[in-house]
Each structure stands twice: as structure tokens, then as C-alpha cells.
Design a binder for these strands. Structure first.
Lengths: 213, 213
DNA sequence: ATTTGTTTTGAACAAATGTTTTGAACGATT
DNA sequence: AATCGTTCAAAACATTTGTTCAAAACAAAT
């Protein structure tokens, strides 16, 4: 009964994600989206009111799929050492960014996300900010525990940015200069990247907050 | 004689940069660009042949302005210690990313650049790649000198990515979660960011490549 | 002043694009 | 069986958009 309706809706959503990602809101045409979904021209207006409604649907779908799925704070976080928690945090972020930027769809979702980051819609801004602020607090807590410094210490915050920056760049960077110099082969092994970032960050955190030598 | 022509050409280029940055190639319309530049509809076709020609002109202009202007390898590099060279490298990259993403035009050039990174045009790909590969080699050399390890060592390359990743994220990150959690006030002092990234990176590099403990 | 070459303008045009409408097909309910 | 609401496809419509073109405006030189 509800099935046929939901199915074409789904087909359109998938086609729209790819179209919006690679060509932007105006660049993508509803005709092209409907054709890719194997539906007729009017179907977008029927299911999503208009092109803008479709865009909003795609946005919220992406946030749910690509971000909410990777939770950097495990349920049993209390039992783990700070170092283990940091490692899990790093792995989660690599996986998250990886799924967004190098996923099976050749970075289509990454493109869409980048567009939203550079010029966010209201819907996106709302969902994304509350998410990030929670996970930022968690990372600050880890670093604080790791060093014995209070979370309010500037060095703790700066270190958090350094950690996330590395995670982000190990995935995103492939796109920037990956093909154009660095060997990307070694970077495909996620666990090796995790180990590097963990070691590098521990060294960095200690150098910044720890004992003067 | 040539002056009046060059002036409107300039006006159109400026308006086009903003339009292309915020709405992409197809999203921006030549009518809107001409209106913003205070010129008539046909002017784009006269000065740049067609819309695509205008886009190429904007692209090459951006690369020259925002990237070529910041050279991370100073002329007297030979005289400096590896640590000093690293510091200059970091400062240069922060300045470069800063000028692109937080410049006076409210990140308009950053938006344009991001679009090109995610979905590069041929013209952009060519210019950007040769640039990056040269500067990547320079950073590898710095780290190699810093640690005594050969440039071919995987840890050297991974460290380079970590360094650049931090630089990139200290600027770009403001856009991601800057306003939504982290205090951005402290990050506006470039020299403080340089100091942090330098210390953090030295600690990280040593931890990754240096003596096992 | 007239001519010449360049620049600018705005109307006109053809192609494309978003939206609406219409009617057919289908399943459920009476 | 008849009716009704939902889903969908295709045609029709109105708008937008890139481009062209001919005339006007302008600047410099003769």
C-alpha cells in the first residue's frame, strides 16, 4: 500500500544526492534527477513539493547516514584508559570522514557536505552544530585526562584542534594533493593512519602541555 | 585607450568571483554577474568570449593571487636551522589559508577554492598540482633534516601530512565548528597558532620517528 | 570635423528548466 | 461492482538563461 510510494521516493532521493553533490543546487536539474531515478518529470513536485523540498530531504538524510552512524564515545568509555579513548576517537573520526569523502560513491557525499559547510542551509547548520559541540567536549575531556590539565587550558583546546585537523586532513587531503605527489597507497590502511595520528598526537600533546625540558 | 576596457573587465571579474563562489558555475547567471558589476548583459561575451571563458579567467586569477603570493621557502633557507624552516613553513601556510578562507572578502575565495578541490576544472588541476608537489618536497626535506631520517621513510611523509593538516584545519576549522563551540578569539592571533603547531608538530615528529622509549 | 577602431548597450532569440495540469493505472474500501 | 484516494507519467506552460546582433557611444587619429 505505502510501498510503491516510498520506493520511488527513495530512488529520487538517491539520484538527487548524486546530482546535488556533483553539480550543486542550481546545477542539478529535476529532469536529470528524475531520469536517473527512472521517474517522470513531475514526481519531484509530487513527493517533495518542489526542488527545494527535495534538497532539504537530501540534507537531513546525509547527516543521519554519514555522521550519526559513527559515535566516537563508546558506551563503556569509563573502563578505558585515556589513551585508548583517544585512539577510538581518532579511529572513529577517520572512519567518519572516510565514509564521507572516500566512500563507495566516490566522494559524492563529501562534495555535498563541503558545499554545506562553505554555505550552510539553515537545516544543516542546526543539526551539525549540536553534534559537533558534543563531540568536541568529549575530546577536550580526553586530553584533559591525558595531561592532568583542566579543560579550560588553552593548550588543551589547541591540541584538540590539532587532533581533529589531522584526522580530517588524512582523508580530505587525498583530494587536495593526494594524487599529485603523496603516495596514497599507504594511506588506504586506516589502522596505520590511526596509529600514526595517535603517536604523533600523544607526542604533540605532551610537548605542548607537558613538562618543559 | 585600453583603460576603459580593462576597468569593466575588472568589475566583471570581481563580481564573477563572488557569484561563482557562492553559487557555482551553473548556479551563477551572467545576468546577475553583469548586474552586480553594473554592466550590461552582453559584456561578458564581449570580454571573455563566453561564460566558460570568464570562469577560467577567475580561476587563474585566484591561484595567482592567493597562492603564488605566499612562498614557504625563503630565499636564504640554507642559512636557517631545520626548526626555523619548519616555523616559517607553518607560518606561510597559515597565512595562505588565512588569506583564502578568512580574508577580507569573508571567505569568498575559500568557497571558490573548495569547489575546485572537490570538483576541479582542467585549468585548476594543472596549476595547482605543480605548485603543491614542489612545496610538499620542501616540507619532506625539512622533516628529514629535522630527524635525520631519509625522505623516503613512511613516517616522514605521514608527519608532513600531519603538519599540513593542522595548518589547514586551524583556518578551515573555524568554518566547520569555529563559531559553534571553540573560542575563536584565541585563534585570531596567527603567531600564537604558529607557536602551537610548531611545538605540537615537533613533539609529534619526534614521537613518531625518533627514539623509542 | 570626419573617420576609424573599440567598447557598450539592450532588445531579440533559442534552448533549457521548474512547475502545473490532466488523466490513466492501481489498490483499498464500501 | 462501484467509488475513492493515491501514485505516476506525459504533455503543456511560464520562466529563466546564455548568446547573438545591430545600433549607439566613445576615444583617438587624421
Amino acid at each position: 500500500m505505502q510501498k510503491p510510494g516510498l520506493e520511488t521516493r527513495e530512488l529520487i532521493l538517491q539520484a538527487a544526492l548524486e546530482a546535488f553533490a556533483s553539480r550543486g543546487f542550481k546545477g542539478a536539474t529535476v529532469r536529470e534527477i528524475c531520469a536517473a531515478a527512472g521517474q517522470s518529470v513531475g514526481s519531484v513536485n509530487y513527493h517533495f513539493r518542489d526542488k527545494e523540498g527535495l534538497y532539504e530531504a537530501v540534507t537531513s538524510r546525509l547527516i543521519e547516514e554519514a555522521i550519526l552512524r559513527h559515535e566516537p564515545e563508546p558506551p563503556d568509555a569509563e573502563r578505558l584508559s585515556a589513551r585508548e579513548k583517544l585512539r577510538i576517537f581518532i579511529r572513529t573520526y577517520l572512519a567518519r570522514f572516510g565514509s564521507i569523502f572516500s566512500g563507495r560513491d566516490n566522494g559524492v557525499r563529501g562534495m555535498f557536505l563541503m558545499r554545506e559547510i562553505m554555505d550552510p542551509s539553515e537545516c544543516f547548520r542546526r543539526m551539525f552544530s549540536q553534534l559537533q559541540s558534543r563531540q568536541k567536549d568529549y575530546l577536550l575531556k580526553i586530553i584533559s585526562e591525558l595531561t592532568g590539565q583542566p579543560v579550560s587550558k588553552p593548550e588543551v583546546m589547541l591540541s584538540a584542534i590539532s587532533v581533529i585537523g589531522q584526522c580530517f586532513h588524512f582523508i580530505f587531503g587525498r583530494r587536495v594533493f593526494g594524487l599529485l605527489g603523496f603516495e596514497t597507497g599507504r594511506l588506504t590502511d586506516i589502522e596505520q593512519c590511526v596509529s600514526h595520528i595517535e603517536e604523533f598526537s600523544l607526542g604533540g600533546i605532551m610537548a605542548v602541555t607537558g613538562e618543559r625540558k
